[in-house]
Amino acid sequence: MVAYVLKRLALMIPTLLGAAVLIFLALRVIPGDIVEVKLRGDGAAISEEVLQKERQRLGLDRPLIEQFGEWMGGLLRLDLGKSMWTERPVSEEIGSRLNLSLHVAVLAMIVGLVIAIPVGSLAALYPNSGLDYAIRIGTMSGLAIPSFWMGMLIILALLHWANWLPTPTFVPIWQDPVACLTLLIWPALAVGFRFSAVVARMLRSTMVEVLREDYIRTARAKGTTERRVVTRHAMPNAMLPTVTVVGIEFAFLIGGLIITEQVFNLNGLGKLFIEATSHNDFVLLQGMVMVIATVMVLTNLVVDLLYSVLNPRIRYS
């Protein structure tokens, strides 16, 4: 197991390296110039000479290959460089916000699973019943509702019924769980809704399929109670594809987060990401993409390990 994890961690390196090359190349093609946006942003008249100097200071006038070498060298030292906009180290810019975003992501995942597992199983147990149809319509809307609109609706609802909005000051959960949850549960709900819908749908369809398998018939033929057939025979099998989907959906969850943070005015990765895009701050963008990619790759590893624990057919030695 340990050997397998180490091997997987080693395999992450080429993937992340590929991502680094890809994002570097993609960003250098961006039309627009940070220097111009930064200095001439308010329409101020700045001479070309000043712009040139600023470019030189940021190293933008050097050949691409040199810039790339620097970026790679930095990556190896885990140094993501300095933001071209605020000139603070990228790791510092990301660090404080990553904490908040991961909080929301994990919270959204928990909210999503708490909704999805009972809902999905219920629908599977009574296929084509009124309950099943209601759940299917509910989960399908979950896929159709834009998460940022969901966020707006939650804010409207809070204003309407509670006449209250949380103050957007982030405190980590280990410092003040109540303050943390009262702030973050709302964006987590907005983002987790889609997540729960996807997982519930997957769980339902795999459960329905699993319940048709021969070994379920065998279990019934042994005189197993219907409850045990579901909990001991069907559930462990239906969880397998569901775990995979949870991993895939985590990407969408992060994606939804980037947009939804805006609605709740949270100063997380999403906000930083959007700012970095509008400022053409490639160094910051690159750094963030690498951080997101690392989170994704690590999530996939955790999902694969979980899968192997649940599935005796796959054992890593």
């Binding site: 398998e213 021969d214 070994y215 018939r217 033929a221 099998n237 397998l240 649940l310 599935n311 057919r313």
Partner: peptide, 11 residues
């Protein structure tokens, strides 16, 4: 049953 693989719970 026939198909002994499918008739046993794989997990």
């Amino acid at each position: 049953f026939q198909e002994p693989m499918a008739s046993l719970n794989p997990v």
